[in-house]
Design a protein around this nucleic acid. Sequence first.
DNA 1: TGCACTCAGTGCGTCGTTGCACTGAGTGCA
DNA 2: TGCACTCAGTGCAACGACGCACTGAGTGCA
Lengths: 224, 224
Amino acid sequence: MHQPRLSPRSPAPDRREALKSRHRRAIVDAASALMTERGDTGFTVDQLAERADVSRRTVFNHFKSLDDIVLEAFGTMLDAIVDGIEANLAAVPAEGPHGMFDGLAAAIRRTDLVAPITRLRQLVGPEGHEPAPPSRAALYERAINDVGARLAAMMMRRHPGADPLVVDLMCGAIISGGAVTVQHWERITGGVDSAESRRVWVELLDRMIALNRDGYGSAGPASP
Amino acid sequence: MHQPRLSPRSPAPDRREALKSRHRRAIVDAASALMTERGDTGFTVDQLAERADVSRRTVFNHFKSLDDIVLEAFGTMLDAIVDGIEANLAAVPAEGPHGMFDGLAAAIRRTDLVAPITRLRQLVGPEGHEPAPPSRAALYERAINDVGARLAAMMMRRHPGADPLVVDLMCGAIISGGAVTVQHWERITGGVDSAESRRVWVELLDRMIALNRDGYGSAGPASP
DNA sequence: TGCACTCAGTGCGTCGTTGCACTGAGTGCA
DNA sequence: TGCACTCAGTGCAACGACGCACTGAGTGCA
């Protein structure tokens, strides 16, 4: 069932709509609260329903699955990532045939991706669970895909004449690349913030951006 | 539909019951608030529903009529009257064949009936509406009857072996007599509190009690 | 006195919530 | 490896709230 996100400034037309919206909001807010308190997404439907003050059946009347709720609860966090990138896009004018990509790349260089992506990975799969169980990995994957989709929507708004396929692929690649880069950066530096670890981040990010800019055609090892 | 009064100390067994109780309570509380604010019972169902945050249909799902709600809202006030009488009953031991009546009479002499009955009449029918419209008069009548019923219930608890018919008649007579006495007292004194007006009250109350104690057989004018 | 209006109260159908019993996946343990 | 348990998710029916159109009583006015 299609659930449009309700704008806070458009009150529901009647009491039924209001109740429905209120319950949906309460469920998402409860999920956020439980994630914040526990530091992970491993709460049960019963705990969520109790916290939201609805029945567990009602939870599934509003959402298809627990993962859907968690993703919705991630919404604010994911929006913050995209909002940060968008703010930096405005600061850097992009020109020339690669303007869209170069502008995006410049904005990403200026945006803190480490903190939110690290936070996301912690919530979805706590330390010591490498590799994450398939269900947790799938949730993380969906969250990253969601950021890509939101980034694409934002880029389409800024470049209305752009090819939607290209924008979708580009944004998906950039965000997935960002996530992989964070992962490598953590392996190399242990996730510790320092002048050296920031240098490593810039290097890895530049490589990721360059590979995405120029393509992977010559990405393999040199032929003998 | 029978609606048992829910004790605050017995939470509803499930969410449906809880919701039902919550809405019923909200309706009664809203009626109390509106009566207090307006100084009368002349609010509309729409105003009540809005204040209680339910639909006007829901109001009639819980109560048969607006008057039923008003009476329910009077509950605290009416209970206070009976509680006051009961407290004074405990202070005066009643002995002898007329012990029950004499004890009740003594307690009533020590209880302030003027304030609550005056308050009740003001809420039900504001000044300048004498005689009150039939509908308002009916509401007042039901409220007075309700006090009588509560008083009878309390007296039965204190005198388990008493004849229920006698107790019902006695309590109804005493309370109705009290209301009539307040009315006469107001006509004579204008409702003003003073040493003289209190003397008049005691005189009228004594006459009412004596008539009820001894019956109305010789109540008419003396034969020539 | 008839008309227009307000408001209490109602019947009926829809909607969202809820209770309950159930299935199946995943997990831990003997 | 089989069993018992937990938990996500589901189908179904009942319940309470709600929306809506309606009726009738009461009221004020020309």
